[in-house]
Amino acid sequence: MRYREHPPPQALRPFVRCLWELAHDYGGSGYSREHLWATPYAELLVLRAGSYRAGGRTLQGVAFMGPRTRPVTLTSDERVELVAARFHVGGARDLLACRPGDAVDLVADAPEVLAPTTPLGSATTLTALAGWLHLHLGHATPDPVVVTAARIVAERCGQVPVTSLAGELGTTTRTLQRRFDRSAGMSPGALARILRFNRARELLVRDSRVDLAALAAETGYADHAHLTRTFRERFDLSPREFRELLREITEAGVASVQA
């Protein structure tokens, strides 16, 4: 697998976390799946070769993946090459033809959900994709409160109560919730839960032998049982079963692409 991330041009940095590219021969690798975990970051993919299958539909050409509150599995049995953009929380709002909340957990052909009608299928290089994004986001302005709140939550790995977050920002919990709903389609509490869980997952990936009680304490869960319940809710797997999945992926020589 060849996977590379690139910083976006300066003009896109308020909206785009990174541009990235991937090339992988799933048919020749012996491993045909990509496990994509929950993430608050939407992505826009331009597939210049191959396709994925997800949830009974085929993704080819240009695809949009909204923020995810649950994992998604992509499958392919051919060589896939693509370029993509990964957005900040709320960064894709001005590209959408639907409410941001309707894009959460959405995996779709991009023309179904994008407002711009300018063709994107020819943007098969990172430079061309960045140019298309600049054309449609160059005059937009992200919500500064949502931007700051998302940064604080990320810096603290999700371990911040929403009431405390609102107080730091000089606003009310209700107002903060409304601003997140308009920009990101998910609540600040949902963002915190996803990032807190992803921190626990990352630490487990880094050291599969880590003590689960210590991991729960470090990442803000009440106890080992709370962490296990959350893993089952997110993956339908216990932490130990997740370790087995990691071992399977590692032995197959595949590094899943994650936000």
Rank of each mutant, 00 (worst) to 15 (best):
E43H: 07
M186E: 02
I152P: 01
L191Q: 04
T163A: 15
E21R: 14
V104M: 03
H24W: 08
V46L: 01
V104I: 14
G28K: 09
L36S: 04
T58N: 07
P9C: 12
P239H: 01
R199Y: 03
R57T: 13
H226D: 15
A84E: 02
E81K: 07
A154E: 11
R70F: 13
T228E: 14
V104N: 09
S208F: 11
G101V: 06
R13A: 11
H35L: 14
S164F: 06
D236C: 03
L133P: 08
L96D: 03
G253V: 09
P40Y: 06
G101R: 14
L169E: 09
A190I: 09
N198C: 06
Y41K: 07
R179Q: 14
L45H: 15
Y3F: 15
W132K: 12
T124S: 12
A252K: 15
H35S: 11
T124M: 08
V254D: 09
L165H: 01
M65W: 01
R196G: 13
V80S: 06
E218S: 04
T117D: 07
S51T: 01
R53C: 00
R79G: 11
L176M: 11
L22F: 14
T69D: 10
E5P: 01
T175S: 14
F235C: 12
R86A: 14
E244G: 00
W37K: 09
A255Q: 13
I152M: 03
F64G: 09
L191W: 08
V113G: 04
L82G: 00
D223E: 05
Q159F: 01
A85H: 07
R193D: 13
D77I: 08
V162E: 07
A154W: 02
H24P: 00
G253S: 10
R196N: 11
A216F: 02
W20Y: 15
Q258G: 08
R193Q: 10
L246A: 03
P119A: 09
R209H: 13
A154M: 12
A255H: 10
R33T: 09
S51E: 05
T163H: 14
R79T: 14
V16S: 02
G50P: 04
E78C: 11
G90K: 07
T219E: 08
A213F: 08
A103L: 02
L45P: 03
H24N: 05
R57W: 10
R178Q: 15
L74T: 10
L169S: 05
F235Q: 13
R182Q: 14
L129R: 04
S256K: 03
H6C: 10
P40E: 06
R174C: 05
T58G: 06
R79S: 10
D236R: 04
T141Q: 13
G28H: 07
L165F: 01
A92N: 05
T219C: 13
V210Y: 04
